[in-house]
C-alpha cells in the first residue's frame, strides 16, 4: 500500500499528537480523547453532507455504539477494547442496513427530520428501560486490551494513544474513500442526482452504502466515548446531541478529512473555557462563534487553510 503525501502527513500528525499526550496534562489528554471520539461521529455526519444529506439523528448510531459497548461489558462480561468496539460497530451496521432501506428514499429536510425521529424513538425506548438505568444510564466497566490491563490511572493516557491511532487510520481510510469512485459519486449526487441517474448509476445504492459506512464510523466514536467517559445515558440519542454534531461539522467544513478533527478539538477547547470563564452565558459564546463562522467562513474553518493556499500560489 502506497501512502500519498496527504496521508503521510495525517499519520505524522497522529504520531506527534500521541507523543504529545505523554507530556500534556491529564485533563487535556482527556479532553482530546473526548473530542476525537466526537470527531468520529462528526465524520459520519460529514460523509453524508458530502452527498447532500444533513442528518439530525446521527446521535442514533453514536448511542448504539456506546450502548453496545456498555451492555456487552455488563451482560456478557467482555472487557477487550477491540472486541467491544467491534461489537458496537457491528450493531450499528446492522441497524443502518435496515433503516437505510427507508432513509435513502428521503432528501433534504425530510431526511433530517426522519433521522431525528428514529433517534428520538431510540431515546424513548432507553428512557423506558429501567434495567438500563433509564435516563441515569449506567457506568461502563474498565477495559483491557488483548489481555493487558492498564495500571490504575494509566487508562486515560492509554486510551488516548489508542484513539489517536484509530483516528489516524480512519483519516487515511476516509481520505481514500472521498477520492474513490463511490466518494466522488456522493458529491455528484449532491450536485445533481437526476444526472447521476441518467449516467446509469443508482444514487440510492451509493447513498445506502454511504449511510451504512457513516453509521459504522459514528458508532466507533460512540464506543470510544463510552470507554473514555465511563458512563453512558440516553442523552446520546437526544436531538440536541445530534445538533451538536452538525454544529461541529459545519464549524470544520466538508472540504477535507482533517477538518472534523480540528473542529471537534477547537469546539471542546472553546466550550470548556467558555464554561469556566462565563458559566452563565457559555451558550451565547457558542452561538456567536457559529454565526461568525457562517458569516466570515461559510465553508468552515478549513477555508482558512485553502484560502491561504490560494493566496500563496497567486
Amino acid at each position: 500500500m502506497r501512502l500519498s503525501k496527504t496521508e503521510l502527513i495525517l499519520l505524522g500528525v497522529a504520531v506527534l499528537l500521541a507523543a504529545g499526550g505523554v507530556i500534556a496534562p491529564q485533563w487535556l489528554v482527556f479532553l482530546l480523547t473526548m473530542a476525537l471520539a466526537k470527531a468520529m461521529v462528526v465524520q459520519g455526519v460529514v460523509m453524508q453532507m458530502r452527498a447532500g444529506l444533513v442528518t439530525f439523528g446521527q446521535g442514533l448510531f453514536f448511542c448504539v455504539g456506546g450502548y453496545a459497548v456498555g451492555m456487552s461489558g455488563h451482560f456478557l462480561n467482555i472487557t477487550d477494547l477491540a472486541l467491544l468496539l467491534l461489537i458496537g460497530v457491528g450493531a450499528a451496521v446492522l441497524l443502518a442496513m435496515l433503516l437505510g432501506l427507508l432513509m435513502t428514499r428521503y432528501r433534504e429536510i425530510f431526511f433530517a427530520m426522519l433521522s431525528l425521529a428514529f433517534s428520538m424513538i431510540l431515546y424513548g425506548v432507553l428512557v423506558k428501560s429501567s434495567a438500563l438505568g433509564s435516563t441515569d444510564g449506567f457506568n461502563v466497566k474498565a477495559w483491557t486490551l488483548f489481555g493487558w490491563t492498564p495500571a490504575s490511572g494509566q487508562a486515560p493516557l492509554a486510551l488516548f494513544i489508542i484513539i489517536v491511532a484509530c483516528s489516524g487510520l480512519l483519516a487515511v481510510l476516509l481520505h481514500r474513500y472521498s477520492r474513490s469512485s463511490a466518494g466522488m459519486m456522493c458529491e455528484a449526487i449532491r450536485e445533481n442526482e437526476v444526472r447521476v441517474e441518467y449516467l446509469g448509476q443508482s444514487p440510492r445504492w451509493v447513498l445506502y452504502m454511504n449511510y451504512v459506512a457513516a453509521a459504522a464510523v459514528s458508532a466507533l466514536g460512540g464506543g470510544f466515548m463510552a470507554l473514555s467517559a465511563g458512563h453512558i445515558d440516553p442523552e446520546m440519542a437526544y436531538w440536541i446531541t445530534s445538533g451538536e454534531f452538525v454544529f461541529i461539522a459545519l464549524l470544520g467544513g466538508t472540504a477535507h478529512v482533517a477538518a472534523p478533527f480540528i473542529a471537534a478539538i477547537l469546539f471542546a477547547v472553546v466550550r470548556t473555557y467558555a464554561i469556566e470563564l462565563v458559566p452563565h452565558s457559555w451558550q451565547m459564546i457558542l452561538g456567536f462563534t457559529l454565526l461568525a463562522i457562517i458569516v466570515f467562513l461559510p465553508k468552515g474553518l478549513w477555508s482558512l487553510f485553502t484560502g491561504q493556499a490560494r493566496r500563496a500560489k497567486a
Binding site: 503525501k5 502527513i9 500528525v13 477547547v269 487553510f305 491561504q308 500563496a312
Partner: peptide, 15 residues
C-alpha cells in the same frame, strides 16, 4: 502540501 502544513500547525497552536 501547504494545505496540510496548516492543520498540523493548527493542532499544535490549539494545544
Amino acid at each position: 502540501k501547504s494545505m496540510l502544513k496548516h492543520p498540523l500547525a493548527f493542532a499544535i497552536t490549539a494545544a
